[in-house]
Every structure is written in structure tokens, then in C-alpha cells.
Design a binder for these strands. Structure first.
Lengths: 140, 140
DNA sequence: GTATTTATTGCGAATGCTTTGCATAAGCAA
DNA sequence: TTGCTTATGCAAAGCATTCGCAATAAATAC
């Protein structure tokens, strides 16, 4: 990974955050990143984390993931592509990826005329330990 | 659509929300639903909207979508499946669906042993009117 | 139809994540 | 090293969403 920013300054906080994201390797949320960062630089602030995450996102260096929960998770953009399947009952996260996504992306690019930069697949369901409750059949 | 709830009461507010979601046909957020509901029942409150959206979600009657933004959108579960592609520059939303999703879902069910109830695909990119800014090449 | 039970509502306050304003600190170019 | 300007830390603000509670109204039993 390169170590220079163009137009921006490479501050110690920025460098630290980048290292943490890279080393953690996978969907941490802002607060988890903040806690880890504080371990190495106790004076760092949560706003700095957010500001830098937004910058890295704009630069396409990190991806912001929105799965089930109502806050975001971040991971390096060049991490091997993978998607998420979350259990609706216990919250367990299963990661997967599918050989079908490149073709799907290509198809969608053709029909939409968009230039696609990012694909996120979130599935939900019930994990093997949380069988679906069958009598919860709704009937509105 | 049926009109009875088991274990729950079919209140006028509940009925109204359901009608609004059905008639709107597609990803409104809680506040948009609230505004429309207020048009027909000025005394309805936003908490009621949220409480009922959560109920309908549990009953699998509506799907909660998390796209780019940091709030949620809701749509009827039995709407024809479709996914979303959002322009990173102007925000335009393109809806698509792909013949590959059933196979992908099946594959993932097999490897994960989960019982999948929901699949959400969010793509991002640049629409034909917002070509990607090429000199924004990052170099951290 | 009336009374009873209990889910649901509306309101306001609270929560949790994220952003912002501002004064201070610190990169970076000359 | 100086000077310009971006970035930081802190505290406060902003939003979306949830919660507590007294009042209301469905559903059920009489």
C-alpha cells in the first residue's frame, strides 16, 4: 500500500487508521476502529476516525458496508470480494462469495449503462442452529 | 392481501400504513411513509410508523432495504424481486434484477446450511450522465 | 350492547451513530 | 524556519430510531 496522499496530508492519525484497517482485515465498525486506535494513540478522537473513513471512502480505498444493523462497517477495498449472510435470529454472520457475481455485474452494466464500482450482497435467513419458527405464519 | 392479524390487533393506523406501502409500490423511507400517513390521519405518530414497520418486518410482509444512505427504506415483500444500483455522483437509482440470483441463493444455501429468506443486492457506480472523474486517482 | 382485558397509540424524552463548528495543532512548501 | 492551510480534539448538534408511560381503543367475554 502506498503511503502518500495527494492534496491531503499524511497525518499520524491517518496512517494509524489505515494500518488498523489493513491489519484487522474485515468489517470493523467505526467504534471498533476507534478503540483499537486509542490503544496506540490515546488522544485520537472519534471524529477523526469518521472524517478519515469518509476520506478513504471517497478515495475508494475502503468500502463501507451496510448490513443488518443500523451502523456501518468498513473494510479495505482490495480485500478479496465477499458478501454477507446474517442469521435473523442469532445474528451470526456467514461470509460467502459467488462465481456468479462477475457475470451479474457485467449484465447489469450492459443494461444500465452505469460503470459499476462496487457490489454488495446481503442475504438474511436462519442459520442451522436457529430453525425458522413455523407457527409464526402471518396472515394480515 | 389478507386483512387480519393473529395475536395482534388490526388498528386503523396499521391498516393505513399497509395501504400506503402497498399503493406506493417501492422503497419509501419511514419519514416518507409518515408524511403520507399524516395526510390521511393527521394524528398518527412517527413512533407508530416505526413500531408497525418493525412488526411487518417480523411478519415478513415488508422488506427493509439498506442502500447507500444511512436510513432505511421499506417495500412490500411480495413485490417482484429487484435490486438497486445507485449512482455515486448524482444519486440516481436504477432497479434491476438478475436471472442469476436464484442459483446464487441456492448455492449459498447449500454451502452455508442457512435457510435464506431474503436477498439484497446493492451496486454502486457512475451513471451514464456522471462519468467517473479520472484524475481523482488516489495514491495513499 | 356493555364491560373487561390488554395491545396499541401519541407524546416527549432518550439513545446511538455520525457530523459539524471552532480554536488549536501540525503537515508541507518555500 | 516561516507561513499557509489542512487536520485534529473537543463539545455540541443532527438525524434516525427506540422507549416509557398514561391514555385510547381493539377484541373478547358476558
Amino acid at each position: 500500500m502506498a503511503t502518500e496522499l495527494i492534496g491531503q496530508r499524511m497525518t499520524s492519525q491517518r496512517k494509524l487508521l489505515l494500518e488498523i484497517i489493513r491489519d484487522a482485515g474485515g468489517h470493523l465498525d467505526a467504534d471498533e476502529l476507534f478503540q483499537k486506535a486509542k490503544g496506540r494513540d490515546p488522544r485520537i478522537s472519534l471524529s477523526t476516525i469518521y472524517r478519515n473513513l469518509n476520506l478513504l471512502k471517497e478515495l475508494d480505498l475502503v468500502a463501507e458496508r451496510h448490513f443488518v444493523e443500523d451502523h456501518h462497517h468498513y473494510e479495505l477495498k482490495d480485500t478479496a470480494e465477499h458478501h454477507h449472510l446474517v442469521c435473523r435470529s442469532c445474528g451470526e454472520v456467514f461470509e460467502f462469495n459467488s462465481p456468479l457475481t462477475p457475470k451479474m455485474t457485467k449484465d447489469v452494466e450492459e443494461t444500465s449503462q452505469f460503470q459499476i464500482t462496487d457490489i454488495e450482497i446481503n442475504m438474511q435467513g436462519y442459520c442451522p442452529n436457529c430453525p425458522r419458527d413455523m407457527h409464526q405464519e402471518s396472515s394480515i
